[in-house]
């Protein structure tokens, strides 16, 4: 936070700008604000619509647009939320989602970090080709892997782990790794060479260089990776359905939410409310990691 404060001060220190200059500056910035506000408004409309409709009955949603509520509020109720929150075992499913998502975010991120470092800063034959294969793996449709992986899990070192958390952790780790390595390798590869050379001259080993230099300098990239891996796993329904299947004790929140709608699609209005409830955790993760997207984190660590 202090780093951000300093950066802000350097940018807009009022002591360096007399009042008149500040007005001019604000006016010159006006197009920036207008452009941003217009875009943010467009981006928010769908979510606002969903939010308002989450308080409306299916009949009102079907007969009038959600914006009519803005001028004549009527027929709003918490019924959809009651239906969502009234589901049995919702709390347990929520915890399951956390149990699934946290390790399934942590493990691939960590493995990706040192793998990416090896790709970025170590020399070995076949490096380019291995990396090529790795990037290609991002495009593999997960569906083609379900049966082979499921068979592997059914005799995983002698036990059947289908239905367990371990199965989803491993699956999500493998599915997340190619992109994770790709993103981090790119970031680490763009770090300046001099830093590492200086460290090696000082007698640092690659292990030290990785933990003391590469990792801290890659914090913004790692933070964004954590956010996205978290969101993907949190919102996943299919992988959990395939590898946890009918084991209700381990199913995630998404399974609860999907089953609000019956097999004919009736009950979709509950999804609006469910969407907002399920969104809270990924948003909190995003907001709490925001502080790592700050100018100077990498620069600061280099100086230190």
């Amino acid at each position: 936070m202090t780093v951000e404060g300093r950066a802000q001060d350097a940018k807009e220190d009022p002591n360096r700008n007399p009042a008149s200059k500040r007005v001019i500056k604000v006016l010159r910035r006006a197009p920036v604000h207008v452009a941003l506000f217009a875009l943010l408004f467009v981006w928010l409309i769908p979510t606002i619509g969903l939010f308002i409709n989450s308080f409306r009955s299916v009949d009102s949603i079907n007969s009038t647009g959600w914006w009519t509520v803005l001028t004549a509020p009527s027929g709003l109720s918490l019924d959809n939320y009651r239906q969502v929150l009234g589901q049995q075992d919702l709390g347990s499913k929520f915890l399951n989602s956390l149990y699934i998502t946290i390790p399934a975010t942590l493990i691939p991120t960590m493995i990706a970090a040192f793998t990416a470092y090896a790709f970025a800063w170590m020399k070995f034959p076949g490096r380019t080709w291995l990396f090529l294969i790795l990037v290609a793996l991002i495009v593999i449709p997960l569906q083609t892997t379900f049966i082979p992986i499921g068979r592997f899990f059914s005799n995983f070192f002698g036990t059947n782990i289908n239905g367990s958390f371990l199965a989803v952790w491993l699956a999500h780790t493998a599915y997340g790794l190619p992109f994770a390595i790709y993103l981090l390798r790119n970031f680490m590869g763009s770090l300046p060479r001099e830093i590492f050379e200086a460290a090696y001259i000082d007698g640092a080993s690659p292990v030290t260089a990785f933990f003391r230099l590469a990792l801290p300098m890659s914090v913004p990239a790692i933070a964004s990776l954590v956010i996205f891996q978290f969101v993907f796993v949190w919102n996943d329904l299919l992988v959990a359905l395939i590898f946890i299947g009918g084991n209700t004790d381990n199913q995630p929140l998404t399974q609860s939410l999907a089953s609000l709608v019956n097999s004919f699609g009736s009950g979709w209005q509950y999804l609006a409310a469910a969407g907002f409830i399920a969104m809270i955790v990924p948003l909190l993760v995003f907001l709490s990691l925001q502080r790592f997207f700050v100018r100077g984190i990498s620069a600061g660590s280099v100086k230190g």
Binding site: V32, L36, W43, L44, I227, L271, G275, M279, F286
Partner: peptide, 29 residues
């Protein structure tokens, strides 16, 4: 360049945090 950077990015990020099923419902509206 603006002070509400965090808010702006949060608004753009929100659609990512919404699950796919809900995104389909949203765009139906």
């Amino acid at each position: 360049r603006v002070r509400y950077e965090s808010l702006a990015k949060s608004i753009l990020f929100m659609p990512m945090a919404i699950s796919g099923v809900c995104a389909a419902v949203i765009w139906k509206f």
